[in-house]
């Protein structure tokens, strides 16, 4: 149904070259924001949106960007898009905007955005570039959400806490208490939990890869 190239782009983004587990790019938001599922998912989707539009726009104008100053041009485009996303979140999901704070503008400096623009979009057709950025973004979002879920369950014993920040007060009851009467393991919520969790996820991926190879 898809061409080989399209399929390669999809599997690269989601698994083979997963930005979170294989390229280990974009660690700053990954580690800082993944303390629960809602934060992780929101920032992951915001990053994916920026990546898709940034890669698309760069791919369109890739032949007229002077090679010598391409990086400043890329960063300007990305920064403009991030500002748009930031203002949009400020307007529509204000509570979430407060929680994510500085990490929304920091999407600009996230290596994975620039990496896909430089490595892929500046050389390939527009459609493929958008697909690649979307898949890479979703791959990163997947890792973020998994890590967020792990840390939230172990650290607080819940899932989807804070969902009302994203979807409004009517979502308050959607929080799932996974382990009732749980005291919480604070280390999972604090930064060490992010490092330990990411290490375990990378180990899990390598283990899967090895098993598949056998």
């Amino acid at each position: 149904m898809f061409s080989q190239e399209t399929r390669d782009i999809i599997t690269n983004g989601l698994w083979k070259q997963n930005p979170g587990l294989v390229q280990i790019l974009g660690m700053c938001p990954l580690l800082a924001i993944s303390s629960n599922v809602v934060n992780a998912l929101s920032l992951g989707l915001a990053t994916t949106l920026v990546m898709a539009i940034a890669s698309g726009s760069v791919a369109v104008i890739r032949n007229i960007i002077p090679h010598e100053i391409r990086i400043p041009v890329f960063v300007l485009i990305i920064a403009a898009l991030v500002t748009v996303v930031e203002l949009a979140m400020h307007a529509w999901v204000h509570a979430l905007y407060i929680v994510l704070g500085v990490f929304i503008p920091l999407i600009t400096t996230n290596c994975i955005v620039l990496a896909r623009v430089e490595a892929f979009a500046s050389k390939r057709a527009t459609g493929h570039s958008v697909l690649d950025a979307t898949m890479m973004g979703l791959g990163l979002t997947g890792v973020l959400v998994t890590l967020g879920a792990l840390r939230e369950i172990v650290g607080k014993g819940t899932l989807l806490s804070g969902i009302d920040l994203a979807l409004g007060p009517m979502a308050k009851d959607w929080v799932i208490p996974v382990i009732p009467d749980y005291h919480g393991l604070l280390i999972a919520i604090l930064p060490p939990g992010a490092f330990i969790g990411l290490g375990l996820l990378i180990a899990w991926r390598n283990w899967m890869q090895e098993r598949r190879a056998r």
Binding site: H183, G184, L185, L186, I187, A188, L190, P192
Partner: peptide, 8 residues
């Protein structure tokens, strides 16, 4: 360290 961070 893990314990003192988690259960002060």
């Amino acid at each position: 360290a893990a314990l003192i961070i988690s259960f002060p």
